[in-house]
């Protein structure tokens, strides 16, 4: 059994807590949160040891691994402390606020051969993995453009005051929403390299942006657009979609379906000429415990498997997340 603790019991922390709590290979022993209201609820109603000081939890509980789901501005110091104590680390996204810290942490984890993962769950979705396979099989031929979009209804009024609405804490649409879109572009196409024409728009928030629009160029030369808005109430929940255009056709994919258009049929891939639609139901493997999308259980399962099999080749490593952090810095600079 792998002994695990969690830092941060916000929305993501609680979700990880439930998934780990139900995992057959995990012994979730401790949780930590700075809010006495939340920690008292856990003290009263769960079996976990409860802490308000994460250092104390790590030093006292003899953990093998830690899940960090605190506000982003605390990630750097917490990840450092966890690695110093030889813990495998799963850290929520976005990884860190300063891109240079991301590289230092990636190097440190790699040197110590500790499993390191960042919570970019789109990498574990059946639909996006199908797109990755199709691209690897060159289904679209030479690519010439992409469009990465995320929309959702988070900030719909001029109010609200949490760390997500404060500048410099890792809140805002750029850190919270666009990081997912950027990571998905990286996962499917290549590392993002340059940006231009960036617009960070304030719609309802004073201190942070509510929408991000930019042009992105990848390391392989492919360019495309990023369009993200968390003040869009025409979506019931966060919706991330990627459109990829190539000389042989086009793919449009989101969490629920992959739509493929081919100019000519592809017998190797069993795809006919014109449109083919593949659904999540045929692309998703069952999980042992379901909370809110197979991908959330699958990413934790991957983390646990990496620990069990001493496998440090992680599907969403610190190293890969560092490219998203770098691009976020570039978007901020470019928007000024």
């Amino acid at each position: 059994m792998i002994r695990i603790g969690i830092i941060g019991l916000g929305k993501m922390g609680i979700s990880h807590c439930a998934i780990l709590g139900a995992h057959p290979d995990v012994n979730l022993v401790a949780v930590c949160d700075s809010s006495s209201f939340v920690i008292d609820a856990f003290k009263k109603h769960t079996r976990f040891q409860c802490f308000t000081d994460y250092r104390k939890m790590i030093t006292e509980m003899g953990l093998h691994a830690i899940v960090i789901a605190s506000p982003t501005k605390f990630h750097t110091e917490m990840v450092h402390f966890a690695l110093d104590n030889s813990l495998h680390v799963f850290c929520e996204k976005p990884f860190v606020l300063k891109a240079e810290d991301a590289e230092i942490l990636a190097e440190k984890a790699e040197k110590k051969k500790l499993v390191n993962q960042v919570g970019y769950h789109n990498r574990f979705l059946g639909t996006f993995n199908e797109v990755k396979i199709l691209l690897q099989m060159n289904a679209l031929g030479e690519l010439y453009h992409f469009n990465g979009e995320s929309y959702g209804p988070v900030v719909l009024r001029e109010k609200g005051n949490t760390w997500r609405s404060q500048k410099g804490q890792g809140g805002g649409c750029l850190y919270d929403y666009a990081s997912h879109t950027i990571d998905l572009i990286h996962f499917l196409l290549d590392k993002p390299k340059d940006v231009s024409g960036t617009q960070l728009k304030h719609i309802f928030s004073n201190d942070v942006e509510d929408a991000v629009y930019s042009s992105i160029t990848l390391q392989n030369g492919l360019s495309g657009q990023l369009s993200v808005n968390w003040s869009d109430e025409t979506h019931r929940k966060m919706n991330t979609q990627i459109t990829i255009l190539g000389k042989k056709g086009k793919i449009i994919a989101d969490a629920t379906e992959v739509k493929i258009f081919l100019k000519e049929s592809n017998e190797l891939l069993g795809l006919s000429k014109g449109w083919t639609v593949k659904y999540l139901t045929e692309l998703t493997a069952n999980v042992d415990y379901y909370l809110r999308g197979e991908e959330y259980s699958a990413q934790i399962d991957h983390f646990i498997k990496c620990i069990k099999h001493s496998e440090t080749n992680n599907k969403s490593s610190f190293r890969s997340a560092s490219y998203t952090d770098q691009l976020i810095s570039k978007l901020i600079t470019d928007s000024k």
Binding site: S35, F37, V154, V155, N161, T162, R164, S165, D176, R236
Partner: peptide, 15 residues
């Protein structure tokens, strides 16, 4: 649930 999930992101637990 989305009513609450979005509220937690925007307002925190206490809010």
């Amino acid at each position: 649930a989305h009513k609450y999930a979005n509220a937690v992101t925007e307002l925190g637990y206490l809010g």
